[in-house]
Design a protein around this nucleic acid. Sequence first.
RNA 1: GCGGGCGUAGAACAGCCUGGAGUGUUCGUCUCCCUGUCACGGAGAAGGUCGUGGGUUCAAAUCCCAUCGCCCGCG
Length: 378
Amino acid sequence: MNFKILKKSKISNARLGFMETDHGVVETPCLVGVATQAVVKTLTSEEVEQTKSQILISNTFHLHLKPGEKVVEKAGGIHKFMNWKKPLMTDSGGFQVFSLGFGKDFGTGKILKMGVTENAIKESHQPREIKITQDGVYFRSPVDGQKLFLGPRESMKIQQKLGADIIFAFDECTSPVADYEYTKKSLEKTHKWAEICLKSKKSKQALFGIVQGGRYKDLRIESAKFIGGLPFDGFGIGGEFGNNKKLMPQMLKWVIDELPEKKPRHLLGIGYLEDMENIIKAGIDTFDCTVPTHYARRGIAFTSQGKLNMKQAVYVKKSEPLDPNCTCMVCLQYKKNYICHLLRAGELTAFKLLTFHNLHYFNSFVEDLRMKIKKGEI
RNA sequence: GCGGGCGUAGAACAGCCUGGAGUGUUCGUCUCCCUGUCACGGAGAAGGUCGUGGGUUCAAAUCCCAUCGCCCGCG
């Protein structure tokens, strides 16, 4: 993978560039669509291409469980398997250490909500259903209950067989309710695992290391220095980013100031529309987010008029497109009343139409931000 | 015409026998939450002349009478 910066903003840390891979070029900053199980749920790969998506991210943990990396390898790799000809990333399974562990126990996402007990996880605490050791994590498969072990070496092996263009080091996404001591110990594991990942990589795939450190400034800086000092091809920034929107750019600055200038930076799992300009101005090149696709399946359409809950009764009477300014296939051909009807009738095509529109909308939104960097506006 | 049943929130019901503040259930409606996936979930709100009129009673969705509407059976 080859990363080039074309322009650096004079008024922020935003930068315009491109990543060149064996499967083509990604113009950055760029949203990475989420295709956990080697599919953007409800869409075919051809349809995803029509949403201006440049790159997708799939998941090691999920594909390992089903269908198994051997099946994907035998199919000629994940690109051929899912008929996606453009660049691909795979996440390492590190997020599942959180989401199936403490995330599940505390019912929290990785963004801390107001009113949730902080520092609930102390050093030496273990999640109920998984076991985190120095070498990796023992999971219980949500598919069949079978025990499985995933560590840095295992994750690398699987990701190499899957064959994405960009792969991630195995980390522990630290819970936002972890205290300082837990976060510090967790960070040490993530760092150790990062080194093992680098050593055990045998493919020519680009490998991104992941910075953790929770909400603690010294840990974030320590992690960015450590991971940034290793010969990774790029860097993921993971974990939580504060419980309010003002904190996120500040926390990103701690990290980004310590990362090598010339390598790409990926922000893991962040990307509401209102976050995008801030994270791009902080110096993020790529970021993945489930929101456009996940919210689509809850009936939410993102539009220039805001978030619309298309299940609402009012829309069954509206014979206008989701967004009057949108030029996507869905907005050109379908009306709100039809999509609303499909949702209320439980028809799956509703999810397909909303997923298509939302992805197109998000990608157009980032496209505009790229243009703004080009014009020197942000 | 006679006999029986039913009428309670936008919908379907429960509550009535044995009177005690319009109580409850399911669905629907509306609001909020969800950021390296979950067609999964969570929190909350609004909404009522108990068909109508009268009577009994300290007190009626509940008991009594009348009336209207719907349904069933028999003529």
